[in-house]
Simulated assay, not measured.
Amino acid sequence: MQSAALIHLLQLASPSLPIGAYSYSQGLEVAIENGMVNNDGSARRWIVDQLRHVVAVFDAPILWRLLRAFAARDQQAVSDWTERFVAARDTFEFRAETIQMGYSLAKLVADLQIADASLLGILQSQAEIPLPTALACAAVALDVPHDAALLGMLFSLAENQVLVCVKSVPLGQVAGQRLLLSLRPELEACAQQAQQLTDDELSNWSPGLSLLSMQHEVQYSRLYRS
């Protein structure tokens, strides 16, 4: 990868990117509240299960398709996969999370003027902009290779989950970094699978996670928005 693309990727994957990712736990907070995640071992199992059974078979493959659609300036494909992703958010919090972060990143793309008119037009033509759509547009606009952009998204997701565990289980800082290092093979496998699945193989079937998300909506005390 060229140095410019690497720098752009690091910026997109940075926790300091002002889209509010730090304020969401994606159901993890209620799992901690219920005692399902209570140490480094259970934290790793949670993150690995999420990667294998949710992200690798739906979120990541859709991002991969959106990256290719934006690169081809295929507005219809972008709209189709955007609508499918939003429709698959089966709880109020999961839907609000991706729309809020997508809106923030899309606004950032426009404010920074990093996308050409065709890319920006496709992005802004969407009725709703979830995070994968905005991220794909930003990555293509910044000439980040598709496989690198996919890994960057996966790492950001895993890093955010680890940070939730560090703050809320709680895990120590060293334990958190050890956990993040141990996830490398899982992240690579997830990225590889995302690029190989056919459209008919995609699935967001994760009823346990959906139920936890619904519980979080009425959780008495919480730090995170999902």
Score class of each variant (00 low, 15 high):
48 V>L: 00
118 S>A: 12
178 R>Y: 05
96 A>S: 14
123 L>T: 05
102 G>K: 01
4 A>C: 04
106 A>W: 02
217 E>K: 13
9 L>N: 13
25 S>I: 07
204 N>M: 11
41 G>H: 11
212 L>S: 10
171 L>H: 08
226 S>W: 07
212 L>G: 13
125 S>P: 05
65 R>W: 01
164 V>D: 13
182 S>E: 11
216 H>Y: 06
103 Y>S: 10
206 S>K: 06
206 S>A: 14
131 L>M: 14
139 A>C: 05
189 A>I: 03
171 L>D: 08
73 R>S: 12
60 A>M: 09
62 I>T: 11
208 G>H: 07
215 Q>V: 03
125 S>T: 06
168 S>T: 15
27 G>Q: 05
81 W>Y: 15
197 L>M: 04
66 L>E: 00
46 W>M: 14
177 Q>A: 08
213 S>H: 09
39 N>I: 04
43 A>H: 08
168 S>W: 02
119 L>P: 01
115 A>V: 05
187 L>V: 15
98 T>N: 11
149 A>E: 00
190 C>K: 10
225 R>Q: 14
20 G>Q: 07
8 H>E: 14
210 S>C: 08
75 Q>K: 13
145 P>I: 06
47 I>F: 05
103 Y>D: 05
114 I>V: 15
90 D>Q: 12
174 V>S: 10
143 D>W: 02
61 P>D: 04
127 A>D: 10
78 V>A: 03
60 A>C: 05
36 M>V: 10
107 K>V: 03
106 A>V: 04
163 L>D: 13
142 L>F: 04
194 A>T: 02
113 Q>M: 08
9 L>R: 15
213 S>T: 07
75 Q>R: 15
69 A>G: 00
155 F>P: 00
134 A>M: 07
224 Y>G: 14
87 A>P: 00
217 E>Y: 06
132 P>T: 05
223 L>R: 15
61 P>M: 03
15 P>W: 11
27 G>P: 07
163 L>C: 07
21 A>M: 13
32 I>R: 08
19 I>N: 09
4 A>S: 14
24 Y>S: 08
161 Q>Y: 09
53 H>A: 03
33 E>L: 07
190 C>S: 15
212 L>P: 04
177 Q>T: 07
25 S>Y: 12
52 R>H: 11
67 L>F: 00
123 L>H: 05
188 E>P: 00
118 S>Q: 12
171 L>E: 10
69 A>K: 00
97 E>K: 13
201 E>C: 02
25 S>C: 14
155 F>R: 06
176 G>M: 06
220 Y>M: 13
220 Y>N: 15
141 A>L: 10
78 V>D: 00
120 L>N: 05
4 A>N: 08
83 E>Y: 03
224 Y>C: 13
122 I>Q: 01
42 S>I: 09
130 P>K: 04
113 Q>R: 14
169 V>C: 12
160 N>F: 05
16 S>Q: 14
178 R>G: 06
37 V>Q: 08
9 L>K: 12
203 S>H: 01
211 L>P: 01
167 K>Y: 04
184 R>H: 10
151 L>F: 04
21 A>K: 11
158 A>I: 02
160 N>Q: 14
215 Q>N: 10
25 S>R: 10
222 R>K: 15
196 Q>K: 13
13 A>R: 07
34 N>A: 15
142 L>P: 01
30 V>R: 09
46 W>T: 08
223 L>E: 13
70 F>Q: 00
185 P>R: 06
99 I>N: 06
136 A>Y: 00
9 L>M: 12
10 L>K: 13
54 V>Y: 12
186 E>F: 11
